Simulated scan of single mutants.
Amino acid sequence: MKTFGFAAQAATAPLAPFSFERRDLRPNDVAMEVLYCGVCHTDLHQVRNDWGWSQYPLVPGHEIIGRVTAVGTAVTHYKVGDHVGVGCMVDSCQECDQCRKGLEQLCRKGNIQTYNDTERFSCDPVARTYGGYSKHLVVREEFALRVPDGLDLSKAAPLLCAGITTYSPLRTFNAGPGSRVGVVGLGGLGHMAVKLAAAMGADVTVISRSKNKEADALALGADRLLVSTDAAAMAAAADGFDLIIDTVPVKHDINPYLPLLDVDSTLVLVGQIGPLAEPSTVPLLLGRRRIAGSPIGGIAETQEMLNFCAKMNVLPDVEMIRMDQINEAFERLDRADVRYRFVIDMASLPATQAA
């Protein structure tokens, strides 16, 4: 299948039109027209090769909403015209203990990322993966997600990454009525953590360096804002949280947050991939507190999250852009100038593109 999108040809190059081919449908494949694609901070990191493993040309995009255009002969769950989503992964070994438990994101052999990866399990010959900044996508049925009726297609795309990245630790660590949840950072991930935790019935506090985001935090569903630079307020909040979701996507100091945890409580890192400022073990040892990390969820949990968001009317706050605005959007994303997630209207792609 010939298709087109926008790709980076090098770490220093802007995204530009790019033509390429998707694989022909295998029996268990679903083909879709991409309708909307979210813009994740990971896309910016990958395009700029901040983590050192980017391969070019690179077509980003792992928050994808589409319409099914064709199905393979063995597909049973989807038909032409269905609305489906694709998140951060498009395959896994399907055989290891983690995959059998529905934890494909923790596949022992490594899941296949939606872009900047190599299909290793079910593709012959081995092929590169290209993401959702494109007109069409082909994915195996098991990694397509059904978009529930009533979920706004134009806003749903960020749920496939920002949504599940925060939903999964909230579920894993039992956020719900009676639980006290702190959220550090109020960007794309943080605003979803607030909305989801509030929808689950938790008492939610946004933890920020200043009071500037207090109105936004309350509007998103938080019960209050705690200023982390206010020593007296932080001391008064000691032992006050069962769970803290840290969404900050850069190296930072987590030590101020550890005394906020109650006994046997957890701070979960979901934003920063890489080094942190050195943590002190004192509050960990004295309070039997924990620092944990969490990636996305598995396919079943992601579907559960979509169903929950449809039921509770939880959607990200988004700014719609055209495909040709992506480089400007990256610049704005780099300086945190977005509330709270960009979504590309893929109808803005031209009818044809040059290679």
Score class of each variant (00 low, 15 high):
H41A: 07
A13M: 04
W51S: 03
A13I: 10
W53Q: 14
N49W: 01
G38D: 01
A10L: 08
V39H: 00
A16Q: 15
R26V: 13
W51V: 04
Q46C: 13
L58R: 03
V59M: 02
D24P: 13
F20E: 03
H41E: 02
F20G: 05
E21M: 13
N49L: 02
E33G: 11
Y36L: 08
D24L: 14
D50K: 06
V34P: 03
L35F: 12
R22N: 15
L25D: 10
D24Q: 15
R23Y: 14
D43P: 07
D24E: 15
D29T: 11
G52C: 06
L58N: 01
G38H: 00
T12H: 10
A16H: 12
E33Q: 13
D50V: 04
S19V: 15
G38L: 06
D50A: 08
V39M: 05
E33F: 11
R48Y: 05
H41W: 07
F20T: 07
N49Y: 03
R48E: 06
L44H: 09
L15T: 03
Q55Y: 12
H45F: 10
T42H: 01
A10R: 04
P27Q: 10
Y36W: 10
P17S: 00
A10N: 08
S54P: 06
W51I: 04
D50F: 05
A16L: 11
T12L: 12
G52H: 09
V39I: 12
S54E: 07
P27S: 12
F20Q: 06
A10V: 09
E21V: 14
H41T: 04
L25V: 14
Q55W: 12
P27A: 11
G38I: 08
L44M: 11
G52A: 07
L58D: 01
G38R: 01
S19R: 15
H45K: 02
H45W: 04
W53G: 14
H45Y: 05
V34L: 05
C40A: 08
P17W: 01
A16E: 15
R48I: 04
H41Q: 05
F18Y: 13
E21I: 10
D50I: 05
A10M: 09
P14A: 07
F18Q: 04
C40K: 00
M32R: 06
E21P: 10
V47I: 10
E33R: 13
L44Q: 06
G38K: 00
F18V: 10
L15S: 02
D43Q: 01
C37A: 12
E21K: 14
S19I: 15
F20A: 09
Y36S: 01
L44E: 06
A11L: 06
N28W: 13
L35A: 09
F20K: 08
A31N: 08
M32T: 12
P14F: 08
V59Y: 01
H45G: 02
H45M: 07
A10K: 06
Q46H: 12
A31H: 07
W53N: 14
V59H: 02
R22L: 12
C40L: 09
Q55S: 15
A13Y: 02
V39C: 05
F20H: 08
